[in-house]
Write a protein that binds this DNA or RNA. Structure first.
Length: 260
DNA sequence: TTCCAGGGATATA
DNA sequence: TATATCCATGGA
């Protein structure tokens, strides 16, 4: 059990800002699933408790990073100040790379409840039975799964993307990517079927801990759209230039403000 | 009925 | 490089 006393960790904000798809309300908090692990996380006042594998979840919830400093640096941008205060309890989750890759391929042109359903069925079908829940499947467990099976889970047109990406991962597509700089890692991620700019940026942020990225989805685009910033790519370039290494955090604060 | 969802691939010019 | 079209599916 981890007890973390800080207003810079809020369970609800952290699970509801679209990083994570495997969670549901339980008791006073949230049951989450990550890889083969599960935890019950709850915030009461300024105290957050995590019931699960302490070593795993200390890293997962990024507990050794100073989010007071992060929120302050983001709030220093005038247009971000308010939302950074409101979203100060968000932690950027250190999620498994393969799980993040597959999950965000499934997120393309999709809505969150449906994404969650597809992922749950994927885990139930192919993940290890952990006794009461299922782990996210490892690449080897999906080795011989054909696209039609993903279609049967509800993946829709993303079925072939998943099948093709699993094959590419098994051929070593993710090897060494952690050591690459953000630009190079992004290029490598975009080489997977079903991974474009936005999905790659989500994987960089949530699966590789890179904060010098700015994922632009429909909500973020609407939040920034002006006569000058009239395409997602222009919004992305502008925000990366402006927010630099704080981009990922700023993006989460704004996404949470619009959606959470 | 149409629109939308944490978009991307492909064809075309 | 920029634009147009298609891609499943379920909820609003």
């Amino acid at each position: 059990m981890i007890t973390f006393n800080s207003e810079y960790f809020d369970a609800a904000a952290t699970v509801a800002c679209g990083q994570l798809f495997r969670y549901h309300a339980e008791g006073e908090g949230y049951r989450i699933y990550a890889g083969k692990n599960t935890a019950l996380v709850a915030t009461a006042g300024a105290v957050t408790t995590v019931e699960g594998d302490d070593d795993f979840f200390r890293i997962y919830f990024d507990l050794d990073t100073d989010y007071k400093e992060i929120a302050a640096r983001c709030a220093a941008f005038p247009e971000v100040g308010e939302v950074a205060v409101r979203g100060r309890g968000i932690r950027i989750l250190r999620q498994d790379l393969f799980e993040t890759l597959i999950s965000f391929i499934l997120s393309a042109n999709n809505n969150i409840p449906r994404i969650q359903g597809i992922i749950e069925r994927l885990c139930a079908q192919y993940g290890d039975d952990m006794g009461g829940y299922h782990a996210f499947p490892r690449p080897e467990q999906l080795k011989d799964v054909r696209a039609e099976r993903y279609r049967a889970l509800g993946a829709g047109f993303r079925d072939a993307y998943v099948a093709e990406t699993v094959r590419a991962v098994l051929e070593g597509g993710l090897e060494g990517i952690e050591a690459a700089d953000t630009a190079e890692a992004g290029r490598r991620l975009c080489a997977f079927k079903g991974v474009g700019r936005k999905v790659a940026d989500c994987i960089l942020l949530f699966g590789l801990g890179r904060t010098d990225v700015y994922p632009v989805d429909t909500w973020i685009f609407k939040a920034h759209r002006t006569a000058a910033l009239d395409t997602p790519e222009k919004v992305r370039a502008y925000c990366l230039e402006r927010y630099g290494a704080w981009s990922g955090y700023v993006q989460q604060y704004i996404y949470y403000d619009k959606r959470g």
